[in-house]
Amino acid sequence: MKKLFLLLTVAMLSACTSSVHMSQVDVGSNSANELELGKVIEIEKSQKNILGFVYDTNYVDQAYKNLLLDCPNGTSMVNVEYLTNHGFLSWTDKIRIKAICL
């Protein structure tokens, strides 16, 4: 019974943790109208990683390219979050970008 409880606890605590490495907010030259009227866009790109065997970080570049496409007139505020979802002998790295387009 004790072992079963332990096993259930382990199962519950397994493979659902995350780690937020950084979250950065940056604001440009100020204009109240830009923040008020601008459209907030959200971009998320990820990369599956098994035991560290990845050879590029192109998913980050892809997220940045999407930001450039979504905001042709530039941005007034941007938030970049880099996090990892942990898993069984593998993990998923994610980039989340939120921005206010001009």
Binding site: A15, S18, S19, V20, T84, L89, W91, D93, K98
Partner: peptide, 28 residues
């Protein structure tokens, strides 16, 4: 637990990866 929660860690792991999602709207 170690092999089930593999990957780079900054600080201790958390059980909610969206806790910082509202930062931008809060700043605005």
């Amino acid at each position: 637990l170690t092999i089930s929660n593999f990957g780079p860690k900054t600080g201790n792991p958390v059980y909610n990866d969206a806790y910082a999602d509202e930062v931008l709207s809060e700043v605005i």
